[in-house]
Simulated scan of single mutants.
Amino acid sequence: MKISPKARMNRLFTNGGCLDVAIDHGVCNEPSFMVGLEDMPRVVDSLIRAKPDAIQMAYGQADLLQSRPEKDKPALVMRLDMGNPYNATRHRTMWSMLQNADEPIIGALEMDAACVVVNLFMLPDEPEMFRQCVENISRVRADCHRYGMPLMIEPLVMLSNEIRGGYQVDGDADKIVTLVRLAAEMGADIIKADPTANPEDFHRVVEAARVPVLVRGGGKEDLKTVLMKSAALMAHGAKGMVYGRNIYQHANPGAVVRALMSMIHDGADGEAAWQVYNRG
C-alpha cells in the first residue's frame, strides 16, 4: 500500500512555494564550498532565525536543526547521496553513491525529515556515473513509496571540466528538459532543476516535470543578478528555489532569505525583493 507523501509535502510548501536553503555541501569534498560553513552550529542558528521554509542538510549535521525545540523551525530536507564531480580536476574514476545503501532513508526517518534529495548527474562521457544515479534513485524511490517520504530528484546537466572546470552547469534547455523528464518518469515528487540559459525557456522544464519545480542556485553570483533571474524563473513556473552559496556565502544571509521569501510567498518581483534585502 502506498503511503501518501502529502503530509510531509505540506511542511515544505506554504501557499504553494518553498525556499530550501542548502547547506549540505560538506558531502562534496570541495574546499571552496566550505567557505561560510566552517561553524555549522552558528550557520544553522542564523538560518532558523531567518525562517526559510526548509534547510537542506546531510545526516551527520541534521541534529543541529532537529534537536532545536522551536515548533516553527524550518523543515528538514535530507541529502542521501554523494559524489565526486565537484572538483576542478576530473577524477580518474567518477562516481555517485548513497550514504546508506542498505537502508537509504532510515536516517531521514530518524531525523523526521520532510523530504529527501538525490542527484541525477549527466556529465559528458560519464555513462557509469549516470547509471549509478539511476540505481540510487530506484532504491530510494522504493523506500519513499513505502514510508510516504517525498523524493526530490536533482537533475544536473554539467559541462565538461575542460570547458570551465568543476561542477559547471550546461544551461541548454533541450538537455535540461530531457533530464527533468527522466526524473519525472522515475517518480519524483519534487524536482530541483538547473535554470535554463534563457529564463523564458523555463516553462518547458515545468511542463516536463508535472510536479513542483524548485530552481537550483549553483555558484555564487551578484545578489541583484540572482534576484532578477529568480523573479524571471518564478514568472515561468518555478515554485521556489534551493539556494546554498548565494545565501550562506553572503555577508547577510538573513536578509537574502527575507528577499527570496518575499518573492516566493508575497509575489515580489526582482526590484521589490532587492528593496527587501536592502532593508536588512
Rank of each mutant, 00 (worst) to 15 (best):
A183S: 15
H250K: 11
N252A: 14
A272P: 05
I190H: 08
Y167P: 01
L19Q: 00
I264W: 00
I105T: 07
G148H: 03
I23S: 02
T196P: 12
L47M: 08
M263L: 12
A188D: 13
I176D: 10
L233A: 01
T93Y: 12
K51N: 14
M94K: 00
H145D: 15
M234I: 05
V43R: 15
L227S: 04
L12P: 15
G240P: 06
G26K: 11
D63P: 04
R181A: 12
A188Y: 15
D172Y: 00
M152H: 11
C133S: 11
G217H: 07
A251V: 09
L156H: 08
P127W: 06
Q66Y: 02
I247M: 08
L76F: 11
N198Y: 05
S160W: 10
C28V: 03
F13N: 12
A188Q: 12
L151E: 09
D170R: 00
Q168Y: 07
D39P: 08
I190S: 08
G254V: 06
T225A: 14
R49F: 05
G83M: 03
M152E: 09
L227D: 10
N278T: 11
A22P: 06
K224N: 13
Q99G: 13
M9R: 14
Y86G: 09
Y147Q: 10
L47H: 05
L76A: 08
V21W: 00
N84G: 01
V257W: 00
P69I: 04
L47G: 03
D269C: 01
G217M: 08
T89N: 13
K175L: 09
L214S: 03
G237K: 07
E126P: 13
P212R: 11
M186R: 10
E207T: 15
G148W: 03
I176V: 07
E38V: 03
E154S: 15
R79K: 14
L182D: 10
C133V: 04
Q132V: 00
D143H: 09
R139A: 15
L37K: 08
R216K: 12
G244Y: 01
M261W: 05
V276A: 11
A197F: 04
T93V: 15
I105S: 02
M57S: 07
Q66H: 06
L156Q: 13
Q132H: 10
